[in-house]
Amino acid sequence: MFKLVDSAVPVACWSCSIGHNDSTLFCPHCSKIQPPPGGDYFSVFGLEPRLNLDLPALEHEFHRLSRKLHPDRFARAEENEKEWSLADTALLNDAYRTLKDPLRRTEYLLKLLGAEIGDGLKSKAEKEARTPIYLLEEVFDLNMQLEEMRAARASGEADPVLASALEQAKRKFDLMLQTVDEELRDEWSAWDAGDDAERATSQKTMVALLDRRRYLSNLVRDVTETLGA
């Protein structure tokens, strides 16, 4: 199922011609920069795929690699090295941006494992179309209140009762978000420690949790925007 970096295929270094594992950014023999390796974001940092990461260590490694890879270090290098420095640094930055954020990290790992996660090139409306059944009633009520609130704003009236009802709804959804986050954290540890079967179960749970989270945070955003308008 999970495909780790294929280290079986040696690649010859462009500079010293000695074969090396293709997941490396620098030739282990002559230290020259290499074209972007084919591995995943975790392998850029020499890590196994994991959901709990040591963030200070990740940042330290990001800085260490940046110093070596950044195009600023290759401003006067040959064209091919310049190009690889750019590609490698883009990969490093993309990897760091994804892994340092727990939610992006989780989505990324699940996608690597073949899950469909609700964004991609869809419009905002498409992404938000699915309302979970257990929230149908509350979301219906909330949308009514939001409409009323916007209408009241438009006509210049203040409606303190409505505002406080919305504040209350916001608090409630905020709490639900917190619960989702706690459940997600539990799943990270479960996945990290689990065997294949346990991981498969955990993945399903996480996909559902992420869907729910996205939906809730959109609700919270709408309420915040309407209240703050």
Binding site: P71, L86, A87, T89, A90, L91, N93, D94, Y96, R97, L121
Partner: peptide, 10 residues
């Protein structure tokens, strides 16, 4: 606010 160089594949 993504650190550059940055890339995306679609």
């Amino acid at each position: 606010n993504s650190t550059i160089p940055a890339s995306a594949t679609e």
